[in-house]
Simulated assay, not measured.
Amino acid sequence: MTSAYPLSWPEGFPRARTREKGQFRTTLAGALENVRSSLLAFGRDSGSPVAGIVLSSNVSLGENRPADPGVAVWFSWDGEQRCIPVDRYDTPAANLQAIHHVLEARRTELRHGTLSLVRATFKGFIPALPAPGRRPWREVLGLGAHPEPAAIETAYRELARTKHPDAGGSHEAMAELNAARTAALKEIGHG
């Protein structure tokens, strides 16, 4: 189950290394409403309703400008889970507004193209899922939403002390740890 808080970023989508100030003139509440309206309109226009919407971010009560402003909108459409993640901008409101524009672009494709065209472009929004039974790297390494490379390496070394077969662990546990480290570094753009 995808969580609304903290940010649940899909595997296979690299994180932004730098962020820019968005030129959108909207509040967080306005951007949330725009995304909600666009999702519902997209479902209506496509003839396949959008369901199971989860807006995932690090925004919490009293914290509208978290250190990690990324936003991932998870939903089901056309029989598959989709995710539109954006962390290009320095505020959650700007990232949400960008997601609104991505959705509006899909609605434009529907008006001027075909449902087949939209299905093809939406294939890019199907998140890479861990192999069945494989835990996400954040869970394996015990790290939060946006760790630095040094934190990944530190967590890896500390866990390897107990997971390695020579230290009483197992080959399976060490393989899971190695895969988690590789996935983490790849996602943050250092792999």
Rank of each mutant, 00 (worst) to 15 (best):
R65N: 12
P66I: 14
P66R: 12
A67F: 10
P69I: 03
G70C: 04
G70D: 02
G70I: 00
G70E: 01
V71D: 04
V71Y: 05
V73T: 13
V73K: 00
W74D: 11
W74L: 09
F75C: 08
F75W: 03
F75T: 14
F75P: 10
S76R: 15
W77S: 04
D78K: 10
E80H: 14
E80A: 15
E80M: 15
R82F: 08
R82A: 05
R82Y: 06
C83N: 06
P85H: 05
P85T: 12
P85D: 04
P85N: 05
V86D: 14
V86R: 11
V86N: 15
D87R: 07
D87Q: 08
R88E: 15
R88Y: 06
Y89P: 07
D90R: 11
D90F: 09
D90T: 11
D90L: 11
T91F: 12
T91L: 05
A93G: 10
A93W: 08
A93R: 08
A94G: 13
A94C: 12
N95D: 07
L96M: 11
L96V: 09
Q97V: 08
A98Q: 14
I99H: 03
I99M: 05
H100N: 12
H100V: 06
H100G: 08
H101D: 15
H101E: 15
H101W: 13
H101G: 09
V102W: 04
V102Y: 05
V102R: 12
L103V: 01
L103P: 04
L103Y: 01
L103F: 04
R106E: 15
R107D: 01
R107C: 01
E109V: 14
E109R: 09
E109Q: 15
E109I: 11
L110N: 02
L110F: 08
L110P: 05
R111I: 06
R111S: 13
R111V: 07
R111P: 02
R111W: 07
R111Y: 09
H112P: 04
H112D: 13
G113K: 02
G113T: 03
T114L: 01
T114I: 02
T114A: 02
S116L: 11
L117M: 14
L117I: 09
L117P: 04
L117H: 03
V118G: 00
V118Y: 00
R119P: 00
R119M: 00
R119C: 00
A120S: 13
A120R: 09
A120I: 02
A120L: 13
T121R: 10
T121N: 06
F122V: 00
F122K: 00
F122H: 00
